[in-house]
């Protein structure tokens, strides 16, 4: 590796710590910052600091928020009787892009994964139970990922929530739009058949 000036080498080192960034990408980003104007660099630095200083978790749903409640929980037009449970805050975006869902969310901040040492206690499940007790919730949609961890989390939550008399549903799994049945594996195909609907 060439010897860069200390501040540049430090910046490359910091970029390399970001997910998916290797040596070459880190160098490209660092040289981009070096060539950018001082204002651009300050804007980038300030944006990073703002994320750390001004963002926290929504008191109700644990989504990332810059105030006590996130925009979804603040919005009176949303239906508070339906809660969609997701693993991470970034899982909300694909659901919102459908423009079909009008309920609220609950972010677990992870999924049960004994292999990674993550059990139910490490997830934000307690807050979900409190929401069920204090509000009139009629349906919980479990939108955890279609992976073994997501499925185990959904199974755990279903076992916990069903005795509370709330309707518990799981998002459908199956063939992605635009793909080909020829390439579907056994699990995806059987889930598609299981979740089929009448036309």
């Amino acid at each position: 590796m060439p010897d860069f000036a200390e501040p540049l080498a430090r910046l490359i080192q910091e970029f390399k710590r970001l997910p998916g960034i290797g040596q070459k990408s880190a160098q490209r980003l660092a040289f981009h910052v070096l060539r950018a104007s001082r204002e651009d660099a300050e804007r980038l630095a300030q944006a990073i600091l703002d994320v750390k200083d001004r963002l926290g978790l929504c008191a109700l749903c644990n989504n990332i928020s810059d105030s006590e409640l996130c925009p979804f929980c603040r919005n009176p037009a949303r239906d508070p009787s339906v809660i969609c449970v997701v693993e991470e805050p970034h899982n909300i975006l694909p659901i919102e892009t459908t423009r079909q869902y009008e309920g609220l969310y609950h972010v677990l901040h992870g999924a049960i994964s004994p292999l990674r040492g993550v059990g139910p206690e490490q997830l934000k499940i307690k807050g979900l139970l409190e929401r069920l007790q204090s509000r009139n919730v009629r349906e919980i949609i479990l939108a955890t990922n279609p992976t073994v961890e997501g499925e185990a989390t959904a199974a755990y939550l279903a076992r916990l929530l069903k005795p509370l008399g709330v309707r518990v549903t799981r998002i459908a799994m199956g063939i992605p739009v635009g793909s080909d049945l020829e390439f579907a594996d056994e699990v995806t195909m059987s889930k598609s058949l299981e979740n089929r609907r009448e036309l």
């Binding site: 049960i112 994964s113 004994p114 292999l115 073994v148 499925e151 185990a152 199974a155 755990y156 076992r159 594996d185 056994e186 699990v187």
Partner: peptide, 24 residues
């Protein structure tokens, strides 16, 4: 090429934890 999947077992939390134990 998938020959046999344990995915259906994930519906049972105890089995899911046991599978993680076997894998570890």
């Amino acid at each position: 090429e998938l020959l046999r999947s344990p995915f259906e077992l994930q519906r049972d939390y105890a089995a899911a934890v046991a599978l993680d134990f076997l894998a570890e």
